[in-house]
Amino acid sequence: MADPAPDSTPASAASAPATSSQSDTAANAAASADLTTTTRTPLHCRWTLWYDNPRFAPAGTLWKDNLKRCGSFDSVEAFWRCFNNMKPPSQLSLNSNYHIFREGILPTWEDPTNIDGGKFVYTMQKKISKTGVCDESWMFTVLAAIGETMDLDGDQVVGAVVSIRKSQDRIALWIKSSDKHICRNIGLRWKKALDIHKVNLKFQVHRDAATTGRSFRNEIQFSV
């Protein structure tokens, strides 16, 4: 069948303005479409947030069995939904830990991705931590990690941990490598992200921790 002639449409229909409800519907549809396309900002990889507190672990259980998976995310928006629904470190009970790691990598020394690597440790005395420094530093550390702003290779920073203790709190940045040149550059970028240029960050290797069973009381390989 042939298309209708251009002048076959009634003039009143062609020239009539859209009703208010039609305009609102069209505007809402456009807004929804825009929301769908602009509110998901993907990250380069998927990350998981964990929590643990050995004080609450049943007797005889392994440390990793006490890990609680709090959520995973692979976009900026999903990260904020997860992060904003968690207590800040300053409100956690004593001996609590948050861990944020790339999906598929457990926050353990023995994980195949971690075993040959190490961590930088940023230690804050409690009186400093309580002023908000710990919460702020943790947030900036997490943002720098998932945004991959500290790591030129894009796969060396595998995670971060914040640990709440009696006299001091700590944030550790976990790196896949223990090569001094690679790690030193990452450590310097971390200091810049936290604006702590006068603070020494100490680097320890995971093999020492796995041998001694201690998280922080191990030989310092170097500092930045």
Rank of each mutant, 00 (worst) to 15 (best):
T25F: 09
G154S: 05
A145F: 09
N84H: 12
Q125M: 09
W190G: 04
P112T: 14
W80V: 07
E148A: 09
R165T: 06
M86R: 05
V157R: 04
I146Q: 01
K64S: 14
T131Y: 01
A2L: 05
K176P: 00
K64V: 08
R102D: 00
A30R: 12
T61L: 03
T212L: 06
Q91T: 09
D155R: 04
R214Q: 06
Q221M: 09
R46A: 15
H197G: 11
R55N: 15
K87E: 01
E219A: 14
A11Y: 04
H181W: 01
Q168F: 14
K192H: 13
W80Y: 14
R214V: 02
K130F: 04
S137Q: 08
L173F: 11
V133M: 10
D151R: 08
T38I: 08
F216M: 09
F203Q: 04
D179S: 12
L67R: 09
F120S: 09
I128L: 12
A172C: 15
L67H: 14
G60C: 07
G147E: 07
A160V: 10
N97D: 15
G187L: 01
Q22E: 15
W174Y: 13
W190I: 13
S137P: 00
Y122H: 15
R81H: 04
G159T: 07
N200G: 11
F56W: 10
F140I: 08
L62K: 11
L94Y: 10
S8T: 06
E136N: 13
I171L: 05
P10Y: 02
S167G: 12
W63L: 11
A33C: 03
P6T: 00
M124A: 09
S90R: 02
Y51V: 15
A59Q: 11
Q204W: 01
R55V: 14
A78C: 03
W50C: 11
S177F: 08
C134R: 09
F120P: 03
E103K: 14
G118S: 07
S223G: 01
T9I: 10
T141G: 11
T19G: 15
N85W: 11
K119A: 14
F73V: 12
P112V: 15
A30N: 10
T61E: 02
P10R: 03
A14K: 01
A144I: 10
I115N: 01
F73G: 06
T25E: 04
A210S: 13
K192I: 10
L43Q: 01
L143A: 10
S177G: 12
K176T: 02
L152K: 15
S90N: 05
F79D: 02
S96K: 10
D7G: 02
Q22F: 08
N185C: 12
A160T: 10
I175Y: 03
L35G: 03
